[in-house]
Write a protein that binds this DNA or RNA. Structure first.
Length: 500
RNA sequence: GCUCGUGUAGUGUAGUUCGGUCCAUCAUGACGGACUCUCGAUCCGUCGACCCGGGUUCAAAUCCCGGCACGAGCACCA
């Protein structure tokens, strides 16, 4: 039997190991007519690491299917999570940075109010929505008991006149709400005559006090998804009931609901969750210096530290779409980034806690002269050399000097005694530890700022002063990756810690 | 309470649709080794998992039943 198989179909005998699937799984539903996705943040702050999943996944699907992404600002709340005017531009920029291209379409819910109000009126006139004047508590009790509220039985004309009063500003906040008519007996209490629009008199930062009635997310989003021809909605599974609510609304309008996909909640060990309002509060309380504070999980902070957009994309795409609630480590994201940048990142020497040693080279022969060349990257993946002018003094880290017998990388074997050191050999003579160092004249003062336990510690040292470029990430030998953020004429250069 | 969802190594993830190709994939991590004039990179190796209990079956991560755990929604927030 086996012999026969070997003859006929040798591949059938091979045990093939299962492979891990790469990339995102296929989108469900019909994708032949093109796909339209959307990313819909609230502009109440800049984008966080949490948002980056939405940008990465949606833009990647758009790339794979040659589709479009709508960037929609869900800014219909003026009280609880009010928009920050600057955040619209921040987010558009951050989207472009992360996705690698600008969003195909950008819209603001606050600019589209007439569309929502018109649909609300149609809904009320059609009898599948009504104005409810119950208080939120009393409605909550009725919903709990599966009982109709008194407003439910009103005819459309009465609701319509209430609707006009709401819009005219003749009702106070909390006096009325527009509900979508479902069934009060639905098993899922979340779906029973859910609220679609409410009164807000607080002025909107972008459109002022023109509107007195504003849609809630479930209604606004439902209408707009249909208006924009969204084919697939990728969102957190906390919004599963939104899908169910909106599907009921779509049935009233006779529309077809987009294909929904979900992801679970994500936490990062080092940061916890990603609450924009929480961060805003801590910034206002002075606990953080701003949205770009390197201790914050904002895209701005990550970008400032030197993370590549592609690394973040790699990470989220590798994670894929699962509904499991997960808690990941920054180490994993850092590994993706290190992989992306290592081969193209130049090396530099940064000596912390420097001690200055004067070199005595009387003993050694084969002195290489007054200059040495060190590769910009040890693997040669960055071409070129760092040229070091040598003098009589060198700087090494105190802890390294304390070892006594060390090798100055690429230069000389020395033995330290006090403030001087004897050069024993320029070639490598034994297996003594190799340390990073600097000729004194090649060093310029610098501070490396790194977050630790919620505060930022700054380590002073000497940074190799060779072709330094602000904004560039370097790998500090035996220290780790860091971005050069400032290079002032006077005073220490500023380095921001990236990762190992 | 009602409703919905999820449970695969330390952390994530593939496989679950159509049971056998799975002594369960890959990454990350830890540990060890090789190489390297970085504590980096590269290469090699080791460690480590199918939530629990029943059932069906020759065969269950996969199907069925029952538990348990965790998360979410039930906001006039998004």
């Amino acid at each position: 039997m086996r012999a026969e198989l070997e003859q006929a179909a040798p591949e059938a005998l091979k045990r093939e190991k299962h492979q891990k699937a790469v990339g995102l799984r296929e989108l469900p539903g019909d994708t032949s007519q093109g796909v339209v996705l959307r990313f819909a943040p609230n502009p109440n702050g800049p984008l966080t690491l949490g948002h980056s999943r939405g940008v990465a996944i949606n833009s990647e699907y758009a790339r794979v299917y040659d589709g479009k992404v709508v960037l929609r600002f869900d800014d219909t709340d003026t009280k609880v999570k009010p928009p920050i005017p600057d955040a619209y531009d921040w987010i558009a920029d951050e989207y472009e940075w992360l996705a690698g291209n600008p969003a195909d379409i950008v819209i603001r819910a606050s600019d589209r109010m007439p569309v929502y109000l018109e649909h609300a009126e149609r809904m009320i006139a059609g009898g599948f929505g009504y104005v409810c004047r119950c208080s939120s508590v009393s409605f909550r009790n009725l919903r709990e008991d599966k009982q109709d509220c008194p407003c439910r039985g009103k005819d459309a004309t009465e609701s319509l006149s209430d609707w006009k009063a709401m819009n005219a500003g003749e009702m106070e906040e909390g006096d009325a709400v527009v509900r979508v008519r479902t069934e009060m007996t639905l098993p899922n209490p979340a779906l029973r005559d859910w609220p679609a629009l409410r009164i807000q008199h607080a002025p909107h930062p972008m459109v002022g006090d023109r509107y007195k009635v504003w849609p809630l997310l479930d209604f606004q989003s439902a209408i707009e998804d249909h208006e924009q021809g969204i084919t697939h909605i990728v969102r957190g599974k906390d919004l599963m009931d939104s899908t169910r609510k909106q599907t009921l609304l779509y049935e009233h309008f006779g529309w077809t609901y987009p294909e929904p996909l979900y992801w679970g909640r994500v936490k990062v060990h080092e940061f916890g969750g990603f609450s924009t309002s929480g961060m805003r509060a801590s910034i206002e309380a002075g606990e953080h210096s701003g949205w770009g504070d390197t201790r914050l999980p904002t895209l701005r902070a990550l970008r400032r530290r030197g993370f590549r957009a592609q690394s973040l994309r790699d990470f989220w795409i590798d994670l894929g779409l699962t509904q499991k609630d997960i808690s990941i480590s920054m180490q994993t994201i850092e590994a993706f980034n290190a992989k992306r940048i290592d081969s193209s990142t130049e090396r530099r020497s940064f000596v912390r806690e420097p001690v200055i040693l004067s070199l005595d080279s009387n003993l050694a022969t084969d002195n290489p002269g007054s200059r040495i060349s060190v590769q910009k990257h040890p693997g040669g993946t960055v071409e070129g050399f760092r040229e070091w002018n040598l003098g009589d003094s060198v700087a090494v880290q105190a802890a390294d000097a304390a070892v006594g017998s060390i090798r100055l990388k690429e230069y000389a074997d020395i033995t330290v005694s006090g403030e001087s050191a004897a050069v024993e050999s320029y070639g490598r003579s034994d297996d003594r530890p190799v340390v990073h160092w600097l000729p004194l004249e090649m060093g310029r003062e610098a501070k490396l700022h790194r977050p630790e336990d919620g505060s930022i510690i700054s380590e002073s040292g000497l940074l190799e002063d060779f072709e330094l470029e602000v904004g560039k990430v370097y790998q500090l030998e035996r220290v780790g990756f860091a971005k050069l953020e400032e290079l002032p004429e006077n005073g220490p250069a500023s380095l921001l810690w990236l990762h190992r």
